[in-house]
């Protein structure tokens, strides 16, 4: 059987998720042996339109990129969205809240009209996505799980329960008990509670779990005098696409 042809593409992003792929140092030579990598602009010269699996990093932030996305979709059998920017628009969505024209003017001044941009969106706004690897950055173990699953023709095991579950298993002291709060209650797990385990707050960079129990989440937050809207607004950095993350009335993020 011919080896599957794999292709990497990038749109608006920091390319950190492709670096996470290169960061699988111990598995990299094994992967390279199992597939043919035909596009990986960050690392190789070859450019090809013949591939089975396309990994797409980055958000969709200008209309002229739609054609490139549609072309990739046409070439690939399986499209994998790689990382928060591709899956949810990631932090790029913050600019939508700041006003696109205003942002461009603030950054480029008089020259703003030279450059094209539009509101930041997930790539799903332009094309169908088959598999999502969430996270900012992606967890290496999930990338490896998806690669192995696709090669074996099975559905990848990606959790759809809250980060709190993993955080408890790691026996971390709950941030709420330390007088802090975070998004763990509604955030999609799979990162092994990465940030809380290193003293950080969970920003739900992997997005929200499907059909989360809104009432239960509200009850937990209410115990600490918080509302879901408040918390979503504070942690809007990665979840601007979710309708609940409307900007607060005063137009500024809570500090």
């Amino acid at each position: 059987m011919a080896k599957p042809r794999v292709s990497f593409h990038d749109f608006t992003s920091c390319e950190g998720c492709q670096l996470q792929v290169l960061n699988c140092e111990d598995e990299l030579l094994g992967i390279v042996g199992a597939v043919d990598i035909v596009n990986f602009r960050e690392a190789i010269d070859e450019k090809s339109d013949e591939y089975d699996i396309a990994f797409i990093e980055g958000a969709f932030t200008r209309e002229s990129d739609r054609k490139r996305l549609e072309h990739i979709r046409k070439c690939a059998k399986i499209v994998v969205a790689l990382g928060a920017c591709a899956c949810t628009g990631g932090l790029n969505v913050l600019k939508n809240f700041r006003g696109i024209d205003e942002s461009m003017k603030k950054v480029y001044g008089e020259a703003a009209s030279w450059y094209e941009t539009s509101p930041a969106l997930p790539i799903e706004a332009a094309i169908k996505v088959d598999v999502k690897i969430n996270g900012c950055p992606i967890p290496k173990q999930e990338f490896l799980e998806v690669v192995k699953s696709v090669l074996a023709g099975r559905t990848p095991q990606i959790p759809d329960y809250p980060v709190c579950v993993e955080c408890k298993l790691r026996e971390n002291v709950c941030l709420f008990q330390k007088g802090e709060y975070c998004m763990g209650v509604v955030a999609k797990a799979g990162c092994n509670a990465w940030c809380p385990s290193y003293g950080g707050r969970c920003y739900a960079c992997r997005g929200l779990i499907t059909d989360f129990n809104k009432n239960a989440a509200k009850d937990v937050l209410a115990e600490y005098g918080l509302t879901l809207e408040q918390v979503m607004a504070e942690f809007r950095m990665f979840n601007g696409v979710f309708p609940v993350a409307e900007p607060p009335a005063d137009g500024a993020l809570k500090s």
Partner: peptide, 27 residues
């Protein structure tokens, strides 16, 4: 593509500024 980080950062708390700007670049 233009990424306008200096616009996105305004309004963020000091706790989040590095969280945002480290994402200018993965490398």
């Amino acid at each position: 593509t233009p990424r306008v980080f200096e616009s996105m950062i305004c309004g963020l708390s000091w706790r989040d500024t590095a969280m945002l700007t480290c994402r200018i670049c993965g490398i």
